[in-house]
């Protein structure tokens, strides 16, 4: 549903221009899962922030449903955003954090049942009344995930949502996300550093590099998918090869390295 044309974002840091996104053309078909991979600092979070309307592009446009200009439509689309950090309200219990976006919009009883459902999916039922500062990192990130999922968004933006989780929980929640997607068909934009995760979840994997989309990997392998499936393995290999090919030159140029660590 949303699409980007010539999308660019340049930040100014200390009088210097930093190009976070350049000339991104992108179509996110309704009810598709698009996964973005790429090295740290390549602009993945910036892309999500633009899609969420938290940042204005310095060039190009974001169109909703192909035609409407972004601003007004952004308010009509329900957006769920799982930030790279949990961003929980420290003064609210886990349950109230999860129900935060629903409060005042739905009857209390309905909020309570929805929150209870999603907490049980996330394995957090016994922590419903805990405060955020009483949670582990992985638990806090699941609360952030639950908060985004509970409002059944049309557009679901996830920034490395499973990064803080152990392998088992990660696999279980990947399956839960796919199940939820099959049930409610939101349009999903998913950022990850885990290539296997990308291959398992995506309809299309996008590889980014210094603010640009440099490769697209369509993935029509039927679901449920298996990490050992030949097609998935081949896709993983292709993405990894792309990531490594570009990683090499940077690591052998000392001057580039120095600049990278200094900034």
């Amino acid at each position: 549903m949303p699409s980007c044309r010539g999308l660019g974002k340049t930040f100014r840091i200390d009088g210097r221009n930093v190009v976070a996104l350049r000339d991104v053309d992108l179509d996110l078909p309704r009810a598709s899962i698009s996964v973005f991979v790429g090295p740290s600092g390549c602009g993945k979070t910036t892309l999500l922030r633009l899609l969420a309307g938290l940042e204005q592009p310095t060039s190009g446009v974001i169109l909703r449903d192909g035609a409407e200009p972004s601003q007004a439509a952004a308010e009509r689309t329900r957006v769920g955003y799982v930030f790279q950090e949990p961003r929980l309200m420290p003064w609210l219990s886990v349950a109230r954090n999860v129900g935060f976006n629903l409060e005042g919009r739905l009857p209390k009883v309905e909020i309570a049942t929805r929150v209870a459902d999603i907490l049980s999916i996330m394995g957090l039922t016994t922590f419903a009344s805990a405060r955020p500062d009483q949670l582990s990192g992985g638990m806090a990130s699941r609360v952030g995930l639950a908060r985004a999922l509970v409002s059944n968004p049309d557009l679901l933006l996830l920034d490395e949502p499973f990064a803080a989780l152990d392998a088992m929980t990660r696999r279980r929640l990947q399956a839960e996300l796919v199940a939820l997607w099959q049930r409610l068909s939101p349009t999903i934009v998913f950022v990850t550093h885990d290539v296997e995760e990308a291959a398992l979840l995506a309809d299309t994997v996008y590889r980014m590099e210094s603010g640009a989309i440099v490769a697209r990997y369509p993935n029509s392998i039927p679901r449920p998918r298996d990490a050992t499936d030949a097609g998935i393995v081949a896709l993983r290999r292709a993405i990894l090869a792309g990531l490594e090919e570009k990683a090499e030159p940077t690591s052998v140029q000392p001057s580039t390295l120095k600049r990278g660590t200094a900034s």
């Binding site: 969420a52 309307g53 938290l54 308010e75 329900r78 957006v79 769920g80 955003y81 930030f83 950090e85 961003r87 309200m89 420290p90 003064w91 609210l92 935060f100 976006n101 409060e103 005042g104 409002s151």
Partner: peptide, 27 residues
């Protein structure tokens, strides 16, 4: 600011962001 953004994404009005996010965090 990052907590305020949570409210912005959720489509909260400025007044709701003030009452539900800014004031409690100022507590």
């Amino acid at each position: 600011r990052r907590l305020i953004e949570v409210g912005q994404v959720a489509g909260l009005s400025k007044g709701a962001i003030l009452c539900r996010i800014v004031m409690p965090s100022a507590l």
